[in-house]
Amino acid sequence: MNKKKQIKELLLNNAVIILMIASAVIVGILRPKFLSATNLRNLIANTSVRFIIALGISGVLIMRNNDLSAGRQVGFAACITATLLQTADYAQKVFPDLPQLPIWLVLLFLMAGFSIIGIVNGLVVSVLHVPAFIATLGTQTIVYGICLVFTGSQPIGGLRSDYTAVASGSLFDIVFIPYLGIIALLLGIFMWFLYNKTVYGKYMYAIGGNGNAAEVSGINTVAMTVKSYMLASALFALAGFLLGGKAGGTSASLGSGYELQAIAGCTIGGVSVNGGIGTVGGILAGVMVFELLKITMQFMGVTTAYTYIVQGIVIVIAIALDIRKYVAKK
């Protein structure tokens, strides 16, 4: 291979990252405000929540499954959190007699509770052998329905300030180090460890690579599938918790379509839809590209309608470029 070709390969193989940096630089030059601390904070906060959802779904994707119920689970989690953490004197309080609950207890309860949704998803997929796409489409619809019943189709406001502070506050009050970013970073490190340094991670890649061979190798594929959905749902709960606080109020419609953005982010970041392939770093890059794209277009004054068109094009191009790495060279 000659030098020119090598450089071309290098550029194409890292196209996603290059695209990301290039768009940031260009917009940074055209609109200097783009590089302001507030905007940076915005970007980090948005990316963080999306990253958590994408991490949740990534384990499921790597194991060759799917979870279309992600977005609705996020929305439901946000609604439950909001009802449990309303200010005592708020007029339309959903549970008027509720005592002042500790925030961490609510989060813990939420993540544990949502794991049950994950267990159901996992069992339907692995024991009843319903294709993941359909099984979780069912869950998506059910969760949304339950959420509508739960909220009475009304938006929920009057959130406690100590709760919203988690999502809107910053470490040492430095604007561009939001708590959200720190939570996402810690979670990213945890997931990296889980995927690369534990038996769980190795089994996950093995099942995605060849489920039958994994079973023959003594891996309990049913238990692993259930665990992957449990972990996913727990993370969706965390994301919903943070998102509700970030928005300052919620309704049942929150989170709609987030699963598709998360899947797109994962795939742009190199998670293979054929299973067995995907890295935490890649997922972060994939999600970031997506958020950066949205924010740069906002800055350039592109209207939302056009933003969608560009997003769609970018998804396809990014994946076409990225997939070159994994398609066997002929």
Binding site: K202, Y205, G209, A213
Partner: peptide, 24 residues
Amino acid sequence: RGTGIFGVLSVSDNVAVASLHDYL
């Protein structure tokens, strides 16, 4: 091909997959 190899995984992962619990 069907029940033996993990094609997209490394030689290392393929060798170690059944005995990971012995290497913690």
